[in-house]
Design a protein around this nucleic acid. Structure first.
Length: 425
DNA sequence: CCTGATGCGTC
DNA sequence: GTCGGAC
DNA sequence: GTCCGACGACGCATCAGG
């Protein structure tokens, strides 16, 4: 510790003020310069006089802009052009945009599309060469060791010598129903006691894409072709439930069925779309449905950072306990308000301030907001034992008084209702 | 050796 | 992961 | 349309400090 202190001290001592500022920013990992991978790709493209598209493509394929720059410097443009999908080296996953409804997805995709169940788990990319299997997470970290049963399933169920596959891993209960997402997290990046947890929380793989098989890259093949090849290459590993349709009513029924079975919603995939690594576009759409909105009261707020400096932009949301009359926090959010609304909210909250400690201002419970969210999780952090997942403000309810906000008892009822569709540990 | 805080990844 | 804002 | 930063919930690993 002392050695570290001294090293940092001497480094900063030798730096100019501006250098010191950025050294500290690097050390604490808060750059906030607006400079991220997008601009870096542009910079690399200019530095080596290489077309931007080529740099972007290579960046997506390797998932590593540093490596792209290195390749360009050492081997030139030719090395990038012949860069393809490489076994045991993960590529960035293709991402989806939001859509409101199955109908909207059908229209966006030109009259017909492929719907798949969207499972509430973790995305994985699997590389197989013979008996050797590697499993990568969404951000391309190697999670092979945490998921031995997935490795085993792939060895047994993928009937190809070489393959790159994508799927979702979820935690499942004894009845086969999905467990809430938080249980999966107990398995996902675990290094210790893997064997013990393996029995406690079983995980299950559902495959949905095939990017490479026995020497052949499929990423430029259309979705339907990849999906067909996938179904022919696996045995005994389930694929995500799928329905190809142009009928909005049929699609809507499929959506309801997915939700009824405890899943998150649907994906809609354009039938002729190639696999575009790292791209969040309209080829893939995700459709979810929030739970019934809650009216909650703001009991405290925190000052924001960066562009939100000086504004109370992060709000504690509370429900009323009808037994004690107390307001109990069920989550925090900074999402949903526009800059203008945050400024106005800051003024109102300052007038209601009761106590200020550090970055946090405790306020008189008075301002009521409507809040959307996707799940109620069991919480080790909040007193009431529950927390909203992905909470965001959808409306300021100036027509409601704090006495009229929803109760903890109602929140608990919604929490319990989730287990009609999901498994319990 | 144990515990609470922090870091980092999943969503 | 969601959302609003900048370009 | 795309990128970016503003930060939410968990849970495990790791670290600092008693």
């Amino acid at each position: 510790r002392e050695r570290k202190d001294r090293l940092v001290e001497s480094l900063l001592g030798r730096a100019s003020p501006v250098e010191a500022k950025y050294l500290v920013k690097i050390m604490i990992g808060e750059m906030r310069t607006g400079f991220q991978e997008g601009l870096m790709e542009l910079a690399v493209s200019r530095a080596f006089s290489t077309p931007l598209e080529l740099v972007q493509k290579a960046s997506m394929l390797t998932g590593d802009i540093g490596e792209v720059a290195y390749l360009l410097k050492e081997h030139g443009e030719a090395a990038l052009s012949k860069l393809g999908l490489r076994l045991m080296r993960p590529l960035k996953p293709m991402l989806a945009q939001m859509a409101e409804s199955p109908r909207e997805a059908i229209e966006e995709h030109g009259g017909e599309t492929a719907f798949e169940y969207k499972l509430d788990g973790a995305r994985i990319q699997i590389h197989k060469v013979g008996e050797k299997v590697k499993v990568f997470s969404r951000r391309l970290t190697d999670v092979t060791d945490s998921l031995p049963e997935i490795v085993q399933a792939v060895r047994e169920g993928v009937k190809a010598h070489e393959a790159v596959l994508e799927g979702e891993v979820i935690a499942v209960g004894r009845d086969g129903h999905p467990l809430p997402f938080q249980h999966l997290m107990r398995r996902f990046r675990r290094v210790y006691e893997i064997e013990k947890m393996l029995r406690e929380i079983p995980v299950k793989l559902y495959l949905f894409d095939l990017l490479y098989v026995d020497g052949e890259s499929l990423i430029d093949e259309p979705y339907l072709e990849r999906r067909n090849r996938l179904s022919r290459v696996v045995e005994g590993i389930p694929l995500t439930e799928q329905l190809v349709t142009g009928n909005p009513a049929e699609a809507e029924r499929f959506f309801r069925k997915a939700l009824e079975e405890g899943h998150e919603g649907l994906m809609a995939k354009r039938l002729d779309s190639p696999y575009k690594p790292g791209v969040r576009g309209k080829h893939w759409l995700k459709i979810k449905e929030p739970l019934e909105p809650l009216d909650l009261v703001i009991t405290a707020a925190e000052y924001g950072y960066g562009r939100r400096h000086g504004w109370l932009s992060d709000y504690y949301l509370a429900a009323r306990d009808e037994e004690t009359g107390e307001f109990l926090v069920v989550g925090k959010t900074f999402k949903g308000l526009t800059d203008q609304e945050i400024i106005e909210m800051t003024e109102r909250l300052k007038r209601l301030a009761i106590m200020e400690e550090g970055n946090r201002v405790v306020v008189k419970p008075e301002i009521v907001v409507e809040v959307a969210y996707n799940e109620i999780q069991k919480s080790p952090k909040y007193k009431c034992g529950m927390a909203l997942r992905f909470a965001r403000i959808t409306r300021i309810r100036d027509d409601k008084s704090p006495e009229e906000v929803d109760t903890i008892q109602k929140v608990r009822k919604i929490y319990e209702k989730q287990f009609e569709k999901k498994a319990r540990l």
